Simulated assay, not measured.
Amino acid sequence: MLKKLSLQVHPNDILAQKRHNSLGKTEMWYIVNAEKKAKIIIGFSEETDKKSFLKTIESRNELELLNVDFVKKGDTFLVPSGRIHAIGKGVLLAEIQETSDVTYRISDWNRRDVTGVKRDLHVNLALDAIDYSAKSNYKAEYLKKKNRPSNIVDCKYFTTNFLHLTKNYNVNHEDKDSFVIYMCVEGTVVFEYKNQQEKIALGETILIPACIKSVAILTDNAKILEVYIK
């Protein structure tokens, strides 16, 4: 990310359906790489309310109540609908999300485009969509075991596992009634199935259809995310 993104929030399914005839958006972030002192904004540093937060927006002091996390490679965060967030400069991340394009932009840090025009904000819509509670830790904690899946997130929208493979690995998806997506976040891997091979490297993904149940993952050192719907 060359520059920080806007401060935003996504409504939940109920609010998104009511306002936009759409789904809301829950997402998760896996930090693929980060510059030194790179950071994200996620949630609030202390519990607040609509009135107090609006005051910070109007005074252009949005960061006063927001939680800022310095991030490093491998950090993972769940961003449920309603949780305010922004991706900072120098952060490369993989995002897994509920299918929706509904986003409320709260602040664009007073930026203007080349013609001097500011982007639209959606503060009034966002205020009713925000979860004003606070957490002591927003990072998703998980065990990083080699050559076996480590569950990061398990919610009704998606399940995401982390795989650090140092040898070839066979998977069987007979227990799933879903496609499975693999995203490479480090190294290279070859997927072998039905006498076919597909290679992916950092930043690339492959979708295994639900009809393919057995897959061999060939590598000597790689890290991948495994995503499916339960």
Rank of each mutant, 00 (worst) to 15 (best):
R119M: 03
D108K: 00
I106T: 03
K146A: 11
N151Q: 12
Y169E: 04
D131T: 08
V153E: 09
V123G: 01
Y142N: 03
V171D: 10
K176S: 05
F179N: 15
S136G: 14
S133N: 08
L127I: 01
D113Y: 03
T115W: 14
L143K: 14
R112Q: 13
D128M: 03
K167N: 01
K176Y: 09
I106M: 00
L121S: 03
L163P: 00
S150V: 02
N161H: 09
Y157H: 10
T115V: 13
W109F: 08
R119G: 02
D175M: 14
Y138F: 06
D175L: 13
V117M: 14
Y157P: 00
Y157T: 09
S136L: 11
C184Y: 02
V189H: 00
N147G: 08
I152T: 06
W109A: 03
G187T: 04
P149E: 12
A129E: 01
K135P: 12
H173F: 15
C184M: 02
M183A: 14
V185G: 01
Y142P: 00
K139V: 07
N161Y: 07
N137M: 03
H173T: 11
V114C: 09
A140F: 00
N110C: 05
N172P: 05
T115K: 15
K139Q: 15
R112V: 14
N151A: 11
S150T: 08
V117Y: 12
S133C: 09
L163Q: 00
R112C: 12
T159V: 10
K139I: 09
H164L: 13
S150H: 06
T166V: 11
S133H: 03
K156H: 12
V153R: 06
Y157W: 15
K146L: 13
D120N: 07
S133F: 10
Y138L: 06
I106V: 07
E186R: 09
N147A: 05
V171L: 11
D128R: 01
D175T: 13
V185P: 00
T166P: 14
Y182W: 10
E192P: 14
D120M: 07
F162D: 02
I181E: 07
P149G: 11
I152G: 04
D131R: 12
Y138M: 05
R112G: 07
Y132E: 04
I130A: 08
F162Q: 01
N110I: 08
G187N: 04
S136N: 15
H173Q: 13
H164K: 12
V185H: 03
S107E: 00
E174S: 13
L163V: 02
N161F: 07
N124E: 10
D108A: 03
S178C: 00
F158S: 01
N151K: 13
M183I: 15
D108F: 02
T166K: 15
Y182F: 08
S133A: 11
D128W: 05
E174K: 12
N168I: 03
I130K: 04
V114A: 10
Y169L: 02
N172H: 11
L143R: 15
K144R: 09
K146C: 10
N161L: 04
E141V: 07
I130S: 05
V114D: 13
N137V: 03
S136C: 11
D120L: 08
H164A: 11
